[in-house]
Computed example of a mutant assay.
Amino acid sequence: MAALGHAQKVRQGALYDAGMTRKLPNQQAIDELHHHFAPSEAAYRMVHTHCQIVADITLELAEASGATWRNDDFDLDLALVGAWLHDIGTYQVFEHDGADGKPLKFNRKRYILHGVLGYRLLLQEGLDEEIAQFARNHTGVGLYRQDVIDEGLPLPVADYVPLNDEQELVMYADKFNSKSVPSSFIAESRQNKRAAKFGDANYERWRKLVAKYGLPDISQLAERYSQPIRH
């Protein structure tokens, strides 16, 4: 119950000035960013709800009893802000954005760009680099420059991988919910298959994440958000 209480405080805007060097945006500022970039109410509901769920999973895994990976420097509030904003770039990769009443549909060829687009948007809005990096570095279970080359991806050749535990946890939490139509939760067994499609090295990276962070209780979240679980 303590975790849910903290999550509720976050939703109510209890994120705080984190010190002399930078500020974390509060919930109102985060919601305003989503509304500003969302091309329609339907797009806002899809993406915002997904980010909400990823924040819930991030919080659950970060506060889980026996979480031996957490260190004294881990910044939970930074991770939650990153979860709320990591997918801000997806508003720019819709093929049908819902503005005309048609069902939402992403442009598959452009979708891979959403992390870089989100990174640029957040920097343009004046957010710190450490926050913008959550958008840039959450694709898959880590996208390396050689992956970009080998797969011929339309991205600048570079590593797109988490730089700290906060980014890594959000990237991992993101794998348990899909912005499909309709949106759904992703069971471990299904994500195992997804990760294996991209080769043994990718699958091993995924399994190391599972071993490090454990598994969230997506059954409770699926009930709370009225979304199915895909196995």
Rank of each mutant, 00 (worst) to 15 (best):
A62T: 02
A43G: 05
Q28V: 01
F37Y: 15
G66W: 13
L33Y: 05
A67H: 06
Y44S: 09
E60I: 05
W69A: 01
T68L: 12
Q52A: 13
D31K: 06
A67K: 11
Q27E: 02
Y44T: 02
L61W: 08
S40H: 06
Q27D: 00
C51I: 09
T68Q: 06
Q27L: 00
M46L: 15
H36V: 03
F37M: 08
H36A: 12
D72F: 07
E60S: 15
L59Y: 09
D75T: 02
C51H: 06
V47S: 12
S65A: 12
S65V: 11
A38K: 08
A38S: 13
Q28H: 04
F37L: 15
H36Q: 14
V54A: 14
P39D: 06
L61T: 07
I57H: 09
R70G: 10
L61F: 04
C51L: 02
Q52W: 13
Y44P: 00
S65D: 11
H36Y: 14
A42S: 12
F37C: 13
H48P: 00
A67S: 13
Q28R: 08
Q28S: 08
D31Q: 05
A29Y: 05
I30F: 07
P39N: 08
H34P: 03
Y44K: 06
D31I: 00
Y44W: 11
S40E: 09
A64F: 05
I53H: 12
V47C: 08
R45L: 10
A62C: 01
T58L: 10
I57F: 14
N71W: 02
G66C: 13
A62P: 03
D75I: 01
Y44A: 12
I57P: 11
E60L: 14
D56N: 12
D72M: 13
